[in-house]
Design a binder for these strands. Structure first.
Lengths: 173, 173
DNA sequence: CGTCCTCGGTTCGACATCCCAACCGAGGAG
DNA sequence: CTCCTCGGTTGGGATGTCGAACCGAGGACG
């Protein structure tokens, strides 16, 4: 599996504020419509007009976002017809890795932004019964829910360099 | 536990595109700086100037975002000094529920938006060793990872009403 | 008292982005 | 030939964004 970005990594030093990959991520996919475009493509709508209808984005904004997401390495264009020449947009591995972000937003929106969710995710894996998906973040290493356990933030050498701290000996309080 | 929004639920019918709480969520916290403000507050920076420094947001934008997040019910103002009268911003339950969104963005950004992450999250729950957090979404009901299992989208009655007539949905392979 | 400082904003002007509606060119279909 | 769809582009007005300057309340210092 790819472990870092191939196409569009973001220079953390060029960002304002605390050096943090959340900010870098938002720089790539945080503009208006971007994540909804990813949602729409992940639902199987690969064509310009389907994405436009599904998201509700203005066509010129959609053009801009699609191009930005392609150069960010989140989407790729793929020709699906020679005549007339037509191409569709598909998720790259990096784009597929955004699905957890969408899952998190969906779950938050279901709970806090709508009276009654318009869509329910159901789940029938293996031999268990069909049921509504209610997901939580779990640490792959130890299996515990992430939020209920003690989590500490540690600056890496790269982070120390970016925040102007001496290379060794100094920790944040 | 609160199961829906108390202050600022978003009228899904007023949104363009597919009725979807991801869009509603982004309407509340998707503007520039909003999620970074939530990150900053969650790190313990409650004061205006600390949030400004931590996020790098212009002061007028920060004012706008803080007010929006307060009326959205994500943050609340709390007075921490009478003289001079000073108040800080704190996460509400709804704001705390955004942490999984930040976790998802962090993980994506670490992998796809930066060469070397500036911060590592470590985790030492219960009796296991300290290790780097690597989280995934797991279904609370059956315990299986959400992305690797069959998940289906089902329109609820509310969703059916909102979309008039449901279109057929294809899935990516 | 007067001057300085910090904190939490507000105001201003230049600029970028956004939205909508109209338009356009390539390529079928009839 | 005319019409249609698809995938955009273009123009103009509204809205959002930015950086820097300004402001008022309230200490702190002398």
């Amino acid at each position: 599996m790819q472990t870092h970005c191939v196409t569009a990594l973001y220079d953390l030093a060029g960002l304002p504020g605390r050096p943090c990959t959340i900010a870098a991520a938002l720089e790539l996919v945080g503009e208006r419509w971007s994540l909804l475009v990813v949602r729409e493509v992940s639902l199987g709508n690969h064509r310009f007009s389907d994405i436009a209808r599904g998201t509700g984005a203005p066509r010129d904004r959609l053009t801009a976002r699609l191009n930005a997401l392609v150069t960010a390495g989140v989407l790729e264009r793929r020709q699906y017809s020679d005549s007339p020449p037509r191409s569709g947009y598909h998720l790259t591995p990096s784009g597929r890795d955004l699905l957890p972000v969408l899952q998190a937003l969906l779950q938050w929106g279901d709970r806090w932004a709508a009276e009654e969710p318009p869509v329910r995710l159901t789940h029938a894996p293996g031999d268990s019964e069909e049921h509504t998906v209610d997901a939580e973040w779990v640490c792959r290493t130890c299996g515990e829910p992430v939020n209920s356990s003690r989590v500490e933030r540690v600056l890496t050498p790269a982070g120390r360099a970016l925040s102007g701290l001496p290379a060794e000996e100094r920790h944040e309080h």
